[in-house]
Design a protein around this nucleic acid. Structure first.
Lengths: 340, 340
DNA sequence: AAAGCAAAGGAAAACGTTTTCCTAATTGCA
DNA sequence: TGCAATTAGGAAAACGTTTTCCTTTGCTTT
C-alpha cells in the first residue's frame, strides 16, 4: 500500500504562526471560555484558516480516550428500510459532531462480534445495533465499554438496555384490527423463526388482535433461517408452500416487507396460480411507493430514528426506551391486485 | 453524553503480565520476525488472550500517522446497487484488515467536502468515491492527502485518477445493439443532466450504437436535477412528458434502473395510459429479480467491486484503471408486460 | 582464540492532542 | 491602599502505540 503523508499542518504550526502556545490554539479550537483575549482568538483563527488546520483525531482520541466515531451495526443493508434508518442516523450524528461507521453484520454473531471488537479498539463513542443478534461480545461490551443502543430489535441477551423502535406489539394488533375491518376472513401469516424481539412481538400482537376479536387465527407459515437465508427467501418459500397446498388465503400478512416481496415473486412464477391475495407487510420500505404499489404496510418513521439515536446517546436517562409512531399505509386491498 | 471507560487493558498490562517490555508485546502483536523467542512469543500470546487485549487504534494511528479506516463516500445509499457495492467493499476491506466508513454525500459537493475533511482528519488510509461530484476538497486532497479511488464515475475534475467501473461506453453500444436486434424501432432515452462520466459515456455509447447501425436515434428526455432530485423522480417526470405528448415509444432506455422505476410509476398512475413500452436500465439493481420482473438491465458485477477496490489500493500501479465486465440481463421484451 | 554476526529484548523517543498546573497581570471591592 | 478574584496564557504531563537505537548473549567462522 503506497503510503503518503496524511496531513500537512499540526497544532504546532498554527501556534507558531499565531505566535502563541499550542495550549492556546487548542483552547480556541475547542472554544474554552476565558482563556484567551478576543485579539488572540482572532489571530489564532486567522492562522487556522491560513493553514486550513483541523485537529488530527488520533491525538485527540488518545488524550480523551474516546473518539467521535459511532458504530452502526446493521443486520442487513440489502433491506432498503435499514439503509433509510442508517441514512437518518448518519445525518443526525453528523449534525452533532459525530461520525457514523456503518457495518453489515449479515445477522451473524461472529461478524457482529468482530465489528464490536474493532469498534471498541477504535474507542467508538457508542455502538448502535440496528437488528442485534445474541453474541458473546455483546455481553462483554455492555459491561465495560461503549454505550449500546438497540434499534428495532431489543437486546437479545434479555438485559434491560437502551431501545428505539415502534411498539411492535401494538402494531401487530393494529394489523389484525385492520384485516378484520377490511373484511378479510382467511388470513395467513408468514414469519421467520428468528429470535428477534421485533418479529416475536409483531406475531404476538397479531395473534392477540385476532383472538380479542373472537376471529379465527391466521394460518401460520414459519420458515427457519436455513430454509431461506433472508426474508425474501422466507416469503418466497412460504408462498410456494401455500400454492402447493392448493388452499390460498385472502390476505397474506408478512412480518416484513421483504417477506411480501418474496411471496409476490412466488406467485408470479407459479404456473397458473390463483389470484394473489392482498398483502400487508411491516416497515413500508421506501421502494414500495415505486415498485410495490399494491403492498399495504406498517410504516416506521425512518426519518425520526436519527434524532432518537442522538437523544438516546445525549440524554442522561440510563436505559432510555424510545417508542416511535407507526402507521398503517393502505394501498390496495383487492385480491388479485398484484397480478394485474 | 455519558462517558465511560472505553477499554480496560493497555499494552502495558500485557507486558507486565508476560514479564516483558512493551516493545516486545508490540512486536509480537505485529509479527515482527527474529525479535522474540518462541517461548516469549507464547507467553505474550497467553497474556494477550488472558486480558483480551487489542491495540487501541488511537495510539497506533498517532504513531503511524495513518489509520485503518477506508472512507467510502457514496452518492446515494437509497440506490440498492450502491449499497450492494458498499457491502462488497466492506467485506473485501475487512478481509484485508481495513475498516470501512460509509457515508452518503447525497450528490452534494458541500457534503462531500465535509466528509473528505473529516476523513482526512481521521487519517483515513484511502477515500473511495462511489459516484463523485466535483468539489474544492477533491482537488486539495488529491494533491496532498489520502489516496483517492473513483468508482463508477470518473474523477470529475478531469484529472487522471484511479478508476473502477464497467466500460460504460461499450455498455451503451451493447444496449443499442440489443434494442435493434430485438426489433425495437422507436426507442426513447431518459437520462439526467448530471455531469457524471457514467451517464455521459452511457449516452454516448447508445447514440454511437444506433448511429453505427444506421438506425434513427432514440428521442431523448433529459431532466435537470432540479426537476427531480433523484433518478426516481427523473424517470417519473420524463415518462409523464411522454404520456402527455401522446406519442409513446416501444422501448424506454434509462441510464439507471431507478429511472425505469420512476417511469413505471408514471405509467401506472396515468389515467388510461397506453400499454407500457418495454424497458431497459443500467445497474440491474438487486431488487429487480424480486420487484421489477419485466425490467431488462445491464448488470454490473457488484460482488467484484470489493476486490477491485482492494487491488487498486494495494497495487503499486499509480492510477490503476480497473474495468469490470457487464452483461445484459434480458427479462421481458414485450410491450405492455409491465402493465399485466 | 579472536572476530564477527545474528538473535533477543529493553529504554526511550516520537506521534498530536487536551488538560492540569502554574504564574503574572488586571480588575473589583472594602 | 491592600487583598481577593478573575483573566490570559504558558510549560509540561499524559494518553497508547511503534520503532529506532542500543546492549547482551550465544554461535559461527577464521
Amino acid at each position: 500500500m503506497a503510503k503518503r503523508a496524511t496531513q500537512s499542518g499540526s497544532i504546532k504550526d498554527v501556534a507558531a504562526l499565531a505566535g502563541v502556545s499550542i495550549a492556546t490554539v487548542s483552547r480556541v479550537v475547542n472554544g474554552v471560555a476565558n482563556k484567551a483575549s478576543d485579539e488572540t482568538i482572532e489571530r489564532v483563527r486567522q492562522a487556522i484558516a491560513a493553514l486550513d488546520y483541523r485537529p488530527t483525531s488520533a491525538g485527540r482520541n488518545l488524550r480523551q480516550r474516546t473518539s467521535r466515531l459511532v458504530a452502526v451495526l446493521a443486520a442487513n443493508l440489502a433491506n432498503p428500510a435499514m439503509t433509510a434508518i442508517a441514512a437518518s442516523a448518519e445525518r443526525a450524528l453528523r449534525e452533532n459532531g459525530l461520525v457514523m461507521v456503518l457495518c453489515d453484520t449479515h445477522d451473524e454473531p461472529a461478524l457482529q462480534d468482530e465489528y464490536m471488537r474493532e469498534m471498541v479498539a477504535q474507542q467508538a463513542r457508542a455502538i448502535v445495533l440496528l437488528g442485534a443478534v445474541d453474541s458473546p461480545m455483546l455481553r462483554k461490551v455492555r459491561a465495560t465499554a461503549a454505550p449500546l443502543v438497540f434499534v428495532n430489535r431489543r437486546d437479545p441477551t434479555g438485559a434491560e438496555s437502551a431501545f428505539i423502535g415502534i411498539d411492535n406489539r401494538r402494531a401487530g394488533e393494529d394489523v389484525a384490527a385492520w384485516a378484520l375491518a377490511r373484511g378479510f376472513r382467511r388470513a395467513a401469516l408468514i414469519h421467520p423463526t428468528t429470535a428477534s424481539s421485533a418479529t416475536r412481538e409483531r406475531v404476538m400482537g397479531i395473534v392477540a388482535g385476532f383472538t380479542a376479536a373472537g376471529a379465527p387465527l391466521p394460518e401460520r407459515f414459519v420458515m427457519s433461517p436455513d430454509v431461506g437465508g433472508d426474508h425474501l427467501e422466507t416469503g418466497f418459500e412460504a408462498a410456494r408452500q401455500m400454492l402447493g397446498s392448493g388452499d390460498v388465503p385472502d390476505l397474506i400478512i408478512g412480518t416484513s416487507d421483504l417477506i411480501a416481496f418474496g411471496a409476490q415473486r412466488a406467485w408470479r412464477e407459479w404456473p397458473a396460480a390463483p389470484p394473489m391475495p392482498a398483502m400487508i407487510g411491516f416497515d413500508d420500505s421506501p421502494m414500495n411507493a415505486w415498485l410495490a404499489p399494491h403492498l399495504n404496510s406498517v410504516r416506521i418513521p425512518y426519518a425520526a430514528y436519527g434524532q432518537a439515536i442522538v437523544d438516546a446517546l445525549a440524554g442522561d436517562v440510563v436505559n432510555p426506551q424510545i417508542v416511535l409512531d407507526h402507521e398503517i399505509i393502505e394501498r390496495d386491498t383487492r385480491i388479485g391486485a398484484t397480478d394485474r
